[in-house]
Amino acid sequence: MAAKYTVSAKRTSAKVGKKTRRATPKTKNVPVAKTYKLYINGKFPRTESGRYFKLEHKGKVVANVCQASRKDFREAVVAARAAQKGWASASAFLKGQILYRIAEMLEGRHQQFVDELQAQGVLKAPAEAEVDQAIDCLVHYAGWADKYQQIFSAVNPVASSHFNFSVPEPTGVVSLLAPQRSGLLGLVANIAPAIVGGNTVVVLASQRLPLCAISFAEVLHSSDVPGGVVNILTGATDELAGQFASHMDVNAVIYCGTSKQTITEIEEQAANNVKRVITRAGKYAHGPYTIKDTLEIKTTWHPVGA
């Protein structure tokens, strides 16, 4: 603490005049490496398990990444459940504003994400394209926030003296096993449609490319997304997939991948509570049908009389 204050004091004095700065001896600027933690309930805890895995690139350790445990997942589901009702009842306008805010914040950190993707082995041009697309994806869904309801709603012309309408509502708490091969766009393209639909999510980031997920959590954190709406874990997909599928308080599970074995396991476990299972592979689909994957249709009847 004392050292920090010293630095701070120096900085303050640096503003006073050039002389003092010149007086500081010239040394190499040591970059401050980031600690990548989990994102649960609007906070950044380390995994309760204390486990980590090294993320290396070209023989160098890029980061020690938290290897989340099933208890971390459990905590995340508790947070997601607690946040669900409030998030679902936030106005469509507000959800749209918040999604657009996420895009703005991501744009502001554009270079950071490009760097991070590159640090994990993505080439510069595709990295830049991926960040651009992630931003566009958020803008796209921000615009859907107050429109998909009109696409999927219906006033049903029933034969009796009743007014009858069907509206989409969020499925609830969604667990999401994010795609492995796309650290940012794959993440964003699956989180955005789920939350714009009023769901709250617990995400397991790409095991191969986990860094952007946690940095994206920081973006979410600074974008008025209420705590618990998006919870992001890093860890081992094989270890946690079963948990993501079996948890009794999760209403839908999204698996982005093609492993037949994992799909089978997820579908079997999902039957515990008749969870909706959505599997996604290939190109990231944009649009309302993707939102609809985690929507329920509710039909309401009321008599028409005086």
């Binding site: 034969a159 009796s160 039909t299 309401t300 009847w301 009321h302 008599p303």
Partner: peptide
Amino acid sequence: GVIWANTFNKFDPTSPFGGYK
């Protein structure tokens, strides 16, 4: 999935029916 307000057990082919959870 289906809520009846001031009525109950009404069905119609035009009216979607099915469950949550």
